[in-house]
Amino acid sequence: MSELLKVRDLRVRYPVAGGIAAMLDRNRPSYVDVVHGVSLDIARGETLAVVGESGSGKTTLAMALCGLAPVLAGDVRFDGAAMSKARDQHLRPDRRRIALMFQDPVGSLSPRMTVRRLLSEPFRIYSELSQDPDRSVLELLSMVGLSSDFADRYPHQLSGGQARRVCLARALAQKPDLLIADEPTAGLDVSIQGEVLNLLSDLQQELGLGIMIITHNLNIVRHVAEQMAIMYLGRFVEQGLSELVFQHPRHPYTAALLAANPSTNFDVVPERIELTGEIPGLLQRPAGCEFHNRCPRVQPKCRASFPDRQSSNGKQGWNCFHPLP
């Protein structure tokens, strides 16, 4: 499989908003590192699922790759070429070839445009994409399972799931090579969720689309992504083949996360791994391994230094001094 996206040690830093009190407090950092050294590869026709703690920087990672968040350091190569940076440190991706589906569907659709207008916008910007925009809009709608009468609706006249499908249609309109989908199935019932994911995997086979899916829905990960990464406080603490990670998580955070997934199995008492300790904030990034204050397997060493990446035959890697056996 040929490589599409290659990211090495990407860092995103935001300044912290603060008033005079913050300026007087010398111990308070004036920035937060939201993405703290992330590396990943996505080949054509391949899907990477990014899961992890809420607030760990998944959306920010996606935004940075789309030139919507400032990049402090790191290399990003897309289809063999290094992505250049603008003066304000934002990456300059090829806007047509990398499509982003935003996490918040309704908020990302302009309220005053009809669905038809929203979906034909990419055709106005890139006229080579469609000879007949009106027809293409209807095709897109049917692709995402919406009937043609949705074309004349405004975003506020859609249910949550319908808005999500319109966003997907809009991302597909630009015929991207890489689709970054931030929570593409949140708010969809399981049947439509299946339709959307099947559609993505069909398109992937047809067009060789590379996909990065950010999701909290652990139930879909094994089915849609051959690779997965688990993010905690700005880093990927474990990544590798989804099948392996689910079967045998090595990082204690991964294990706790996967065990937390609520299930419909009434007769099995879930074996949850309780995480105690406060969820660390970005302003007080813990020393050593960032998970140490909540980790059931913590040892003194974990408080002192950050563990290097360990791996088993290159198919699964983790950053932990005391991984699960």
Binding site: D189, V190, S191, I192, Q193, G194, E195, L197, N198, S201, N219, I220, R222, H223, V224, S242, E243, N261, S263, T264
Partner: peptide
């Protein structure tokens, strides 16, 4: 019944084609 059958959480084997109604 159909809704429950579509729940990917209940599907043991990993599959590229999820059931739909």
């Amino acid at each position: 019944r159909k809704l429950l059958e579509c729940d990917p959480g209940r599907i043991e084997e990993s599959t590229r084609h999820l059931p739909v109604i």
